[in-house]
Amino acid sequence: MMATTWTRPWFWAFAAAALAFAATVVLTGVQGAGGLLVAALTFASFSVLVGLGQMAVITMGPGNVDLSIPAVMTLAGTLSLKLMGGAAGTELWGLLAALGIGLGAGVANYALIWLLRIPPIIATLSASFVFQSVAIWSNRGLRIKPPVSLAEFSTGSTLGVPNAAWIGLAAALVFWMLIERTAYGRRLSAIGQNARAARLAGVPVEGVRAATYVLSAVMAALAGFLLSCFSGGAALNMGAEYLLMSIAVVVIGGSSIAGGNSNVPGIWGAALFMFLIVSMLNSYGLGAGVRLILTGVIIVAIVVAASGRRLTP
């Protein structure tokens, strides 16, 4: 393993994010830099939360991907806000309800994968249809505001860093410990590198898979809860952009899409980059069409560049 910083897979994600940040600040002037940084940290933290869960799932190797993330976010957001009803003193129950919904959704996802022996893509896809339906049914066009305390917390800052970013950082730290320092993390990587070898070596493959799908859904639920508090209410399409986002941050962050190798710091770098690139293109006054095209071209270019690095050790 090379020790120099620039050979680390996560370095490029942060470098690209810094570049996008600099390019924006050059145009908008230094006075806008602080605000841009706060916005980037806040919005990136939502992507980080779902990205960490997706990363654990993708680490298990080809075919493993969680397509139910947007639906779980929406379901957790709508149901928990409905339960709290905007009243003070219900915050803890709301959070627990959201996490419980994540737990239930994760168990349902894994039950489908295991019982029906179907590819996770199809299992999480069909389950997400059901989750989305429940969210639509429970929402009925209502827009319930979160309790004031939660709205203030999720939009506020501590020590100059947005609270959402603190949660994102804490989650990243927990995931780093989990992946790098626990038996679970070792088993997860082992499954991704060679599921058959892992099974023969005595890794409880199905148990680890179950735990990982539950973990991903719980992270999605947490992100949905935070996002709906942050934006002053849950919306039925609030999770939509996070499906592509969760996969994109995993890959741009330097985790292997083929599994077996995950990278926690890279998730943060990639999430910052994904937000900053859009604000950069925005500040240069480009229309929605050009912005989309450039975002796509940049994602493909990064993947091509990253693969080149791996081919030449």
Binding site: I293, L294, G296, V300
Partner: peptide
């Protein structure tokens, strides 16, 4: 999966 994901942005942008 990632290349086509990126391309989906390009097509919808166009």
């Amino acid at each position: 999966i990632v290349v086509t994901l990126g391309m989906s942005f390009v097509w919808s942008g166009l």
